[in-house]
């Protein structure tokens, strides 16, 4: 039986010809049709907007006030902390740090990881040493190492970005390498070599496009891991002292010993972290499903 896309039920229903659509549009359509994919993307966009627009929403929390440890109310949506600062304002301003670290660290880690992963797959001589380096880095307990370095250099947002990126790239390099390895031996890649294409041409025209999908997934996953790492370091007192972060709010709650009496000091930063990371994870899962023709059913 020959496959005729024009007569598939969905195509008739929508009056569009699926065979005429580019793969990218097909993926996008499948992605937004998945309620999980769409809603997780909306949550992520909302978080980024919150981070950008924070100064327009609330004032940066500072100083002391007499309204100490007040439970959530119409005046203080998320309650107040042990020195009377509004927790809603801390969460909104914390989104700035978390999003900034997530974007910065994942961009850097993706760049490093893609370069190393592609290089390992493309240049046979580099494959073994780079593969070994990736394995070694992945097997080490990274958090204690991040702690050591953040403590040495002194906590700041740029420290956090660099430290998290430097220890997150191996994960990216691993998936990029395993995606690129089979591509390198494909006939069309060999053919380009034969007709005298330069390495740069083959890399940018053939190898990079082949690994782009796993890189896209990695961007989101690395960003969510960066948020977790940043929150973890801030929770240990290694956050940027001049800016708010969700981890810092938790750190203050733990340090001041108000956890027992004021549940809201821990609940809201925790929810913010959970929401961001779950949204990022679901977003990458939905994207993977949307890219898979067998699952999206066209």
């Amino acid at each position: 039986m020959t496959y005729n896309p024009a007569t598939t039920p969905t195509a008739e229903l929508l009056g569009t010809d699926l065979s005429q659509m580019s793969p990218r549009r097909k993926t996008w359509r499948a992605f937004v049709r998945n309620p999980l994919g769409l809603s997780s993307l909306i949550v992520l966009i909302f978080m980024v907007l919150l981070a950008i627009a924070a100064p327009l929403i609330v004032e940066e929390p500072s100083g002391f006030s007499v309204a100490v440890l007040e439970p959530p109310s119409s005046e203080h949506w998320f309650g107040t902390d042990h020195i009377g600062q509004d927790i809603f304002a801390q969460i909104v301003w914390g989104a700035r740090t978390s999003v900034a670290v997530a974007v910065g660290a994942s961009a850097l880690a993706i760049l490093l990881g893609t370069v190393v992963g592609v290089a390992a797959a493309y240049f046979p001589r580099l494959n073994t040493p780079l593969g070994m380096l990736i394995d070694v880095m992945l097997s080490l307990p990274i958090l204690p190492l991040m702690i050591l370095i953040a403590a040495l250099v002194g906590p700041s947002i740029s420290t956090l970005v660099v430290v998290i990126a430097v220890f997150s790239w191996p994960e990216v390099a691993r998936v990029v390498r395993s995606q690129a390895l089979p591509t390198v031996t494909l006939t069309y890649v060999n053919a380009s070599h034969v007709i005298g294409a330069s390495n740069l041409w083959v890399l940018t025209r053939h190898i990079l496009p082949a690994v782009t999908p796993v890189v896209v997934v990695s961007v989101v996953l690395t960003a969510s891991k960066a948020v977790l790492s940043e929150a973890g370091l801030s929770f240990l007192g290694l956050g940027d002292p001049n800016s708010w972060s969700w981890g810092t709010v938790l750190y203050n709650a733990q340090r001041s010993g108000v956890l027992a009496s004021a549940w809201w000091t821990a609940l809201f930063p925790s929810l913010a972290i959970l929401l961001f990371v779950v949204a990022a994870t679901l977003c990458s899962l939905a994207y993977n499903d949307a890219r898979n023709p067998r699952i999206r059913g066209d």
């Binding site: 733990q254 549940w263 972290i273 959970l274």
Partner: peptide, 22 residues
């Protein structure tokens, strides 16, 4: 499983501490 992989350790710890400890 997906939610479990997205958990922030201190959140889990504080939650358990709050419910079962306090």
């Amino acid at each position: 499983g997906v939610i479990g992989q997205s958990l922030f350790v201190p959140t889990v710890g504080i939650f358990l501490l709050y419910v079962f400890g306090l």
